[in-house]
Every structure is written in structure tokens, then in C-alpha cells.
Design a protein around this nucleic acid. Structure first.
Lengths: 107, 107
DNA sequence: CACATAGTTTGATGTTTGCCAAACAATCAA
DNA sequence: TTGATTGTTTGGCAAACATCAAACTATGTG
């Protein structure tokens, strides 16, 4: 059977600026966010850190920081977790912030 | 006589995103940035932290973090230091970033 | 000169962070 | 059931960080 659930993440109103900025203020997490932004959303956790030599528990930690800050949401499907950027939520809470960061990353 | 100098700060091309985000990912520094953004630029260091109960050496530290990340520039005039946000530099390096942060702060 | 003013620098302290490794949990497949 | 896959959690460690306090620098003032 196909079970589906979502890992807990903050409501839009509870997303806080210092926490978001802190989550983004790490090179590894920035790289992850950049890759997530390029994704169609069909990639699992491992896919997002392909080519980055980093332990899986560290990856898990970074994903948690991103999720708890409100930047990402995680859908659990079987053994896989699919991580997505919460674009709508971020755009509503902090208009332009995500876009400017992604733009900066691209340059 | 009126001596004038500028404290060292990174060139536009050397401003790095993770460092900027890290500098902004602190509540005290965010508050300082918000006040600086509202300033005409005629206020000295102490003025920017009026009402924040924090030691002057800590303030000095935060100003250094902001300056070294490229967010601010500091003009030394006699005993006073006048801190300004480097709007042009930031807008050139990371278009929209500062504005979105300031907008988020205002809301 | 003596003193005040404005801020920096240098420890010291407690907290947070980023990382790995090992153990664990849950799902899927043979 | 046995084993492989995909992560999470816990523990430990070194580096980084925010803060304060005390000493110091530099400038202005009486």
C-alpha cells in the first residue's frame, strides 16, 4: 500500500526572518536550496546532495534545519522523502526574499 | 583639524552571499540594519543601538560583522564613527536582497 | 596636562553549530 | 524471514558565536 504523510513544518505566520536567514547562511544548505529550486520536485533527499561529499546524517540535519525554518516541506512516501521549497509560503511571508537569494545563487 | 578615513570593507565583487546572510541572521544585527536603513546617515554608532540593552563592545563586534560582510561602510570622524548601509554595492551584487529583507523587517 | 568621550581589542564563558559514526526505524524486495 | 534501502536519532567533538568585562587607543575639551 502507498502511505503518505507530511513532516511537521511551521505555518506561514510562524515563519521567522532570523531563522530563515540563518538556515540560508550555510554554504551546504544554500547548495541544497539551489538544487531544490531547479528540481521538479521528483527527486528524493539523496538526489539533492549528489556530488556533495557529506555524511547522510549531516544531510538529514540540514534538511531538518531547512524544514523547521519554514523553507521546505517534506513528503514521506515509503522509504523516500521528497523535499520541496515552500515557494508560496515564503513569497507570502517575505515577498521577494527567496527570489533574490536564488538569483544571487545563480550568478 | 578634521581627519577623515574609512574603515576597510570588501569590494563589491568580494561580497559573498553566505557571509551576508549570516550577518543578517542575528536579531540584534537585523535591528541595527533596520535602524540604519531609516537613518539619514547622520547618526553615530551609539545612536543606532539606543534602547537596546547591550554592551558597547558587543555593539562594536556586531558593527564589525556587518562591515566585513559588506553590508555597511564606516566613516571615522574624530571620535565618532558613522555607519551607513552600502545600498548601491548590495543592490549591484545581490539585486533585491536588501529590499526584501528591509520589507520583511518593516512588516 | 588631566579628564572625558567614543569606540576597539582582548580574554573568558556559555551556547550553538556542523560534522561524523554508530545505532536505530521503517519500508520494500527476494 | 532475511536482507537491502533510505533515511533519523543520539552522542561526541572541535570550531564558531554572542555576550560581557576590563584594558587600551584615539580624539576632543577644560
Amino acid at each position: 500500500m502507498t502511505t503518505m504523510r507530511e513532516l511537521p513544518h511551521p505555518a506561514v505566520a510562524d515563519i521567522r526572518l532570523p531563522e530563515v536567514l540563518h538556515a540560508l547562511a550555510d554554504p551546504v544548505r544554500l547548495e541544497m536550496v539551489q538544487r531544490l529550486a531547479e528540481n521538479t520536485g521528483d527527486e528524493n533527499c539523496i538526489g539533492v546532495t549528489d556530488g556533495i561529499t557529506i555524511h547522510k546524517s549531516t544531510v538529514s540535519h540540514h534538511f531538518r534545519v531547512l524544514r523547521e525554518s519554514g523553507i521546505t516541506s517534506t513528503r514521506v512516501d515509503g522509504r523516500n522523502r521528497y523535499v520541496q521549497i515552500r515557494r508560496e509560503a515564503l513569497d507570502e511571508r517575505f515577498p521577494g526574499l527567496l527570489d533574490s537569494v536564488l538569483k544571487a545563487l545563480a550568478a
